[in-house]
Computed example of a mutant assay.
Amino acid sequence: MKRFFYLLETTTYQIYSSIAELPISWDEVAHENAFLQTPYLKVLENVAPTNMQCFYIGIFKKSELIGVALAQYLDLNKLESFGERDRCIKTYVRNFIFKNFASHVLFLGNNMITGQNCYAFNETIDFETISKLLIRCASEITSYFKKQNITIHIVSFKDFYKECAIAFNEFAFKSIYEFNTQPNMVFELPHHWKNNDDYVATFSKKYRDQYKRAHKKFDGIETRALSLEEIITHEERIYELYHHVAKNAPFNTFFLDKHHFTTFKKQCGNRFVLCGYFDKERLVGFHTLLLNGSVLETYFLGYDNQVQKEKMLYLNMLYNMTKFGIENQFKKIIFGRTALEIKSSIGAQPIIMSGFIYHTNKYVNKVMANIFPKLEPTLVWQQRHPFKDS
């Protein structure tokens, strides 16, 4: 893709398809969000899912870079599966619609993670300008694909916290359908917690018993952070464990490349942690973390399903990630939008996030408010309150 240069009032922007083209000040502008910095973006460029293409947006005031953003194109026709856990009529209808009427999707933001990771600025920009910029960029990328005889069906602006969504709704997004999917589970860590004992001491009896039971079941499992060399050694097994979990998710729009975790470790070094779980030297599970300033971001994981059931592996992973966050004095942990009930049982709270979506066919777009809710899996869950004072 050639670099585009367009004027929006006093602000200009360029759209890039290669990390090598990015301005040298890119990481300085993106310094508060590791998911918009070049080490992570190089992971996407080098080992993106086979059905994904990324675009990088630089926003300028005169000749100075003041903002960065990410866009991702997904071709759902290349997907091996949308997810195999839920087999019901609604799921089959959803999959049919996506395959036939929404297979080419453009995201402004990062479809691979949960959280507000669409853009970053190093100075205050009003929401009216941001919303216009995002829509203009989406339009230009859509036109780029049209010239290649590819019709973008769906455009989605992904994951905004409530205050941003309200602001966007007042400006260029006001005519675009706003949706809420599963909440983002976020654990705000009290600053006075210094170690794991402080955390466990706050549990009510029921959840302290759950913690003890999980740790007793976990007996015999060795846990350790893996070096790059160890990740390379276990690469096939890591991917096998990841793929098992991903394939059995209720809905997928991509699958990671087999070299994703190895490349991530090469690019991000100590900021990327892959923790392995071993049963008699056999890798039976792993979780990953990205150290994002004062925020600990949970990333992808995988496990052997039989061991998970016997050893309560997933729950122990959540406890271990929380322990890591406390001991390393992170302000909060982003747990994402899956397994809501069990994440609430370890202390995470649901945070509603909004997205905006439109179909490029104006007739389909008119009924988006009727169609979209029917495509979302029905979610019934009970929030848990594990602490004494909750």
Rank of each mutant, 00 (worst) to 15 (best):
F5Q: 09
L8H: 07
T10K: 10
L22C: 04
L22D: 08
S25M: 08
V29P: 11
A30S: 14
P49N: 10
M52H: 13
Q53S: 09
Q53E: 15
I57K: 05
F60A: 03
L65D: 01
G67T: 03
V68R: 03
D75H: 03
L76D: 02
N77Y: 07
L79R: 14
R87I: 04
I89T: 12
T91F: 00
V93K: 06
N95K: 05
A102T: 00
A102D: 05
V105G: 03
F107L: 03
N110H: 04
T114R: 06
T114L: 00
Y119S: 13
F121H: 04
T124N: 11
D126G: 06
F127S: 15
L133G: 14
R136F: 06
I150T: 10
I154L: 13
I154F: 01
S156P: 04
S156L: 00
S156G: 01
K158M: 15
F160Y: 07
Y161D: 15
C164T: 11
C164A: 12
A165D: 01
A167H: 09
F168S: 10
E170G: 13
F171N: 13
Y177R: 12
F179Y: 13
P190M: 04
H191Q: 09
W193C: 08
N195E: 13
N195L: 00
K206T: 03
K206V: 02
Y207Q: 11
Q210W: 11
A214N: 15
H215E: 14
F218N: 04
G220R: 14
R224C: 06
A225C: 12
L228G: 08
R237N: 08
H244S: 15
P250E: 09
N252F: 09
T253V: 00
F254D: 07
F254E: 15
K258R: 14
H259A: 06
T262L: 03
N270R: 03
V273R: 03
G276F: 03
F278Y: 05
K280R: 07
E281N: 14
L283D: 09
L283K: 05
V284E: 04
L289R: 00
L291F: 13
N292R: 12
T298L: 06
L301H: 10
Q306M: 06
V307N: 04
K309C: 14
M312A: 14
M312N: 07
Y314V: 14
Y319M: 12
Y319T: 12
M321P: 07
T322I: 11
T322G: 02
E327I: 01
K331D: 08
I333P: 01
K343Q: 13
G347Q: 06
S354M: 08
H359Y: 01
V364M: 11
K366P: 02
N370D: 10
L375Y: 08
L379A: 10
W381R: 11
H385V: 01
H385Q: 07
F387Y: 09
D389L: 11
